[in-house]
Each structure stands twice: as structure tokens, then as C-alpha cells.
Design a binder for these strands. Structure first.
Lengths: 154, 154
DNA sequence: AATTTCCTTGCATACTTATTCACATCCTGT
DNA sequence: ACAGGATGTGAATAAGTATGCAAGGAAATT
């Protein structure tokens, strides 16, 4: 339940302004997540969100990438890292997997996918906030989808 | 006096970690600025600082997005509006719908489609003059195509 | 099955930050 | 010099956030 809630929070923050935890609580309740402020405080901490003049924001929206904050700097960022920073949602249609990200997050995610050269992935196309991942066939796409989803929810 | 204090705060934040306003108060006092927490709260607001997992940080240091923070306008334009302005042609292939637009028109069209969250649309990717709309399956794509075509021809 | 262990959560409350109010200071035009 | 109006500040306090603790539940172990 917690993981879905975290994703719901990411989507909410990407789409609307959230000034405080009680407002977040009310918005989540409308989406079916009924939790208390205490839980949200812990969620926010775990998700490493930032709070600024415009309310809460995702770590990536500030350039406050977890990597930048925590030292390690060699080699390009892994798919897992960029997904954690930018990805909001993963969907699939036929042999394609669609990754929605925060604004500007699509390029880094696609770059990481390209770099890792997953065997089932034929290619990627990135816009501003959407990555299109072309897979060999629907079956492979399903695998890629579940792998990405797992990363997103970890 | 306030201005020097603001600069001192900036320097402090650039050089060390500050996790709360009372810590900031003590560090400033060592530099000769004796003020209360209330004043620092106001300073932080005026300077539009962010607070995150690592304490306070400067807005400049992180490429903070002005779009997200500022300005409420009256909602994004509808698909119908942007289609009327930019779209030239609508085609379909398998589960994908391709919208050709005038140069530079793809982004706005994709943004509007994303915003309206059509249920059959899994995602969109926009280049300069082409929007690729990924649908759940060929049937849904046909529906989306006809809907877009209808808009285009109205 | 029973027990243990680990995780998640709500409640109550401690801690941190924002705001209200009152007052002092410094302009500015009379 | 004085009245009126900004602006900056501290003290008190309201508003918002984090956390210790215990309860409940799921999964693993005995």
C-alpha cells in the first residue's frame, strides 16, 4: 500500500501544488488513500522531497538529485537512479512501454536505458516528460514493464 | 543590515549544512548577526530558499523551475484549441496515432493531450512537428484517430 | 499452530517554522 | 520640526512537521 501511495504522491506533486501535509492528506484521501499526517511526514522523508516557496517538490525538480547530494560520482547514472529521480508512472501498449516522468526527466531516463542496453529494448524515444521504449515484442515489453515498475516501486 | 545578513546566509549555506533555523541563528551570531528565529523565518521566505533532506539550500544552486513556482493562469488550453491552431494531419499505424503539426506545434498538442488524460491514450511523445500518440491497442487508436480527425475538421 | 520478527501505521506530543501584534526606526513631504 | 507611512524587528503564539511508542498484521521460523 505504501508504494502505491508514494506513486500517488509523486503524481499529485507533478500535477498540482501542495503546500502542507494536511493538504496532501486531503488530496490523497480523494484518491482513496486515507492516512494521517504522521504517515505523510514519514513518506516525505523517505521520498526525500523538498519543500520550497511553491510547496513540496520532487527531488529532480530542483536539480537535487540524490546522487548529487550523496557523493558518488563515477559513471553515468543507472536506470534505477534516474527512475527514482524522475519517473512517475509506467504503462504498456503492445510492444511499447511508456514511462511518464516529471518535466525534463525523459531525456535522462532514455539515456540511462540506452546506456544499459537491455537486450529486449530495441530503442527509446524521449520527449520532455515521456519516454517511449520500443521492445522486440509484446511479451518482452511486458517484462520490461514489470522490471521498470519494480524499480519505480522500490 | 538585512542585506548583509542575507548574503551571510547564502555564504553559510554554500559552505556548510544547516538543518534548522535555530542552528542558522547560532552560526550567524558567531558572524556577528544577532537576530531571532522569527527574523530568519522571514529571511528564508524572502530568499526563497528550499529545505530538503540535506537542510536548507539556495534556489540558484539547483536550477529551480520558475514555471512550477510562479504564476497561476486559467488552466491549460484544450486539445480542441491547440489542434485548431497547430494540427495539419492525423494518421494511424497499429496502436499509434500520428499528428502532424506546423513547426513547433507538436509540444503544445502533446501537452494538451497529456493534460486531458484520455483513457485510451497511454502516452505521447512530441518532436518538433510530429506527435506520436500511443494507444492501448489498434481499436482504441482508431477511436482516438477519429476523434482527433473530427476535431481537426470542425 | 504458535512464536518470533519485521513493517507499517495512528496517537500523542516534542520540535520546528510562520505569523500576529506591538513597537522602534527611518524616510518624505508639509 | 512634525505627521504619516513605509520597513524591520522581537516576543508570543499559532501552524505545521517529526518522532517515541504501542498496536496490528504479514511473513518467516520453530
Amino acid at each position: 500500500m505504501k508504494l502505491q501511495r508514494h506513486n500517488a504522491i509523486r503524481e499529485l506533486l507533478a500535477g498540482s501544488r501542495v503546500t502542507n501535509q494536511d493538504e496532501l492528506r486531503r488530496k490523497l484521501r480523494r484518491r482513496g488513500f486515507a492516512v494521517t499526517q504522521a504517515t505523510l511526514s514519514r513518506d516525505i522523508h523517505e521520498m526525500r522531497l523538498y519543500k520550497g516557496p511553491g510547496g513540496y517538490s520532487l527531488p529532480a525538480a530542483n536539480g537535487h538529485t540524490p546522487a548529487a547530494g550523496t557523493g558518488e560520482d563515477d559513471g553515468p547514472p543507472s536506470v534505477a537512479e534516474v527512475m527514482a529521480s524522475f519517473a512517475l508512472r509506467v504503462n504498456r501498449a503492445m510492444n511499447q512501454v511508456i514511462v511518464h516522468t516529471v518535466m525534463g526527466g525523459a531525456q535522462p531516463v532514455a539515456a540511462a536505458l540506452d546506456y544499459e542496453e537491455w537486450p529486449d529494448v530495441v530503442g527509446t524515444v524521449a520527449g520532455d516528460d515521456t519516454v517511449l521504449v520500443i521492445c522486440r515484442d509484446p511479451r518482452k515489453a511486458a517484462e520490461v514493464e514489470s522490471r521498470l515498475t519494480k524499480i519505480l516501486e522500490s
